[in-house]
Design a protein around this nucleic acid. Structure first.
Lengths: 332, 332
DNA sequence: TTGACATATGTCAACGTTGACATCAGCCGT
DNA sequence: ACGGCTGATGTCAACGTTGACATATGTCAA
């Protein structure tokens, strides 16, 4: 900036005025400044500006467990377009689902003076330490899973209700033995909630809960094996409920490999090619982009001074019957 | 920091020394400082630090067309883990495939003094204006598509070779009329390259090129319609080559809807559930995470002072025969 | 002509941090 | 006892920018 000023023969302050449309500047001066700016390829230094005006950085930090997972990618996309509409930049980090990385990312973001934090917490995390920041008025919103040890805004899917609806759907088609394929640590919020929904649905239908019908795998292949184990039971399930996208893919994979087109399946979270599968996959669809957008709106409201109590936003799910969930149980 | 200093009864400089493990500090002082840091929840201000030391921000900016697209999401993931391993933070923005947004994101990133820029250029972009920054030594790497009007590093898939191999694969199975389903503007680099690969393969096999066999759609549904148009030709193709993931999904969709299991299909870019499709989808797989990682390595090398000429890195593709690409043409 | 006022620009300090250099106390060897 | 060294801390200025306030020039009404 000083360079530009020297080039034009004015003070830095005048250049600043031109660039920020602050105070009065003679038309001719303005033009000469702009010319110099272009000539020198000057870029204002946001860091210095922020420091001077004591403002936080016009960026929000988002922490997700994994960028590769389309679910989180889409969430991030939803957040990004919403915050960008307000001139904010998005900074993303992925925690690889570990509390340590999450911690260090939070520290980095705080050191960068982001305007807000959005976090999809890792399974093992604890967010007590963020209390100071929250009190200081930094908007913090948790996504997909609520905070642990901290009263803060969160935006989550209607996991329990959705899972209940999905399982009830299978029950309605006559299934009485319904397997549950989960992945991730069983302590994970979403896993727990969906499992509760599963049990709710069984309970409401007067069906017994059988521990043997619950299997877990931490990735697609593991979920496939989990599914296989269920199919090989002496008294196997006639229908399956897969608790997330990886579990669904694993289940689809296992059923396909085993050549079993007679087992009903409902997955939680939609898949891109669900409708061309054989049979087309019935899912309880989430709205990841919507979740991101809702969370971003919350953040923006907080930035605008909304100081109301922390709230939890439930993003509804939608049952999309496509075929796999409408297969009847085999006649006995 | 001043607060911490006051609390302990020392100067800010001493606190700085403790925090940066700079110069000698008495053990007792160090402990008292650390205690005060914890007590006050002090977070160093990275912006001020960067400004003082005149360093660029320890962040690299990445611009992708769309966060929701798993291809770019995975690329971003590859970049992120590589740069984080070096203590750098990733800032992401999406350009929605428009030159304007791309421009404004670049400006924002430059104003933030990122250490490096990584760009998946939008179709219409022009990067001449980045010449100044490149000369100034800012590492700039283009991903998936090369820069326009600028000599800069780029990392791209072996599009032409991959497409050629995919189409040659179909030829090897006896196909003589092979349709091309592309999406995006036909001017897009990847689209062009893959199309050239397609023509190469035809030429090498001595097959005529038929303009009627080339169709385009800009998203999944459009690609499905494009596919349908091909199938309805008087002299329809017996095999299809889909030039990217959306085109593949569209083609799969269309074939499935039309109940056509006799048309061979090879897609460019792998899909999550490719192997459970019916028939399982043969693809020319790209390595998005690998691309991101390679690009990040390039950036890191540049940051380490590598001043060699701009280079273009080709990331190889891999043909994964799964069934759909090995269907023979119907006997005539 | 005066002074009140608007316009155009300049001066200075400060944001939080850290390099360069200064200060001071204690200890060593001679 | 003295110079020199080491360790521990302090002082000051500067990074690039902008708020607060000052200055200079011109315009216009009384």
């Amino acid at each position: 900036m000083t360079d530009v000023a020297r080039e034009v023969g004015v003070t830095a302050k005048t250049v600043s005025r031109v660039l920020n449309d602050d105070g009065p500047v003679a038309v001719e001066t303005r033009e000469r400044v702009m010319a110099a700016v272009r000539k020198l390829g000057y870029q204002p230094n946001l860091m210095a500006r922020n420091m001077r005006v004591g403002a936080r950085d016009a960026a929000v930090g988002l922490i997700i467990p994994e960028m590769g997972n389309p679910f989180f990618g889409t969430v991030a996309g939803g957040v990004e377009s919403a915050v960008r509409a307000r001139g904010l930049t998005l900074i993303v980090g992925s925690s690889s689902e570990t509390a340590e990385l999450e911690q260090s990312l939070i520290a980095t973001f705080l050191a960068r003076r982001v305007s807000a934090l959005m976090i999809v917490p890792s399974a093992a995390g604890d967010h007590r330490h963020l209390r100071t920041e929250r009190v200081a008025g930094l908007p913090i919103v948790f996504l997909d899973r609520p905070a642990v040890g901290l009263r803060a805004d969160s935006v989550v899917s209607a996991n329990r209700e959705g899972a209940r609806a999905g399982v009830a759907h299978l029950v309605a088609y006559g299934h009485r033995r319904i397997g549950f394929v989960g992945d991730q640590p069983a302590t994970l919020y979403t896993r727990r909630e969906r499992f509760l929904g599963y049990r709710d649905a069984l309970g409401r239908a007067g069906l017994p809960f059988d521990r043997a019908l619950v299997e877990t795998g931490h990735d697609q292949e593991a979920a496939a094996h989990a599914t296989l184990r269920l199919l090989e039971l002496a008294d196997p399930p006639t229908a399956l409920f897969a608790a997330n996208n990886l579990a669904s893919m694993g289940a689809v994979l296992a059923l396909s490999r085993a050549g079993r087109r007679d087992v009903a399946l409902v997955g939680f979270d939609d898949l891109p090619l669900a409708e061309v599968l054989d049979p087309p996959l019935t899912v309880v669809a989430q709205d990841p982009a919507g979740m991101g957008a809702v969370a971003a709106q919350l953040v923006l409201a907080r930035l605008d001074g909304d100081r109301s109590r922390a709230r939890r936003s439930l993003v509804p799910t939608r049952l999309l019957p496509r075929g796999s969930g409408e297969l009847p149980p085999p006649p006995r």
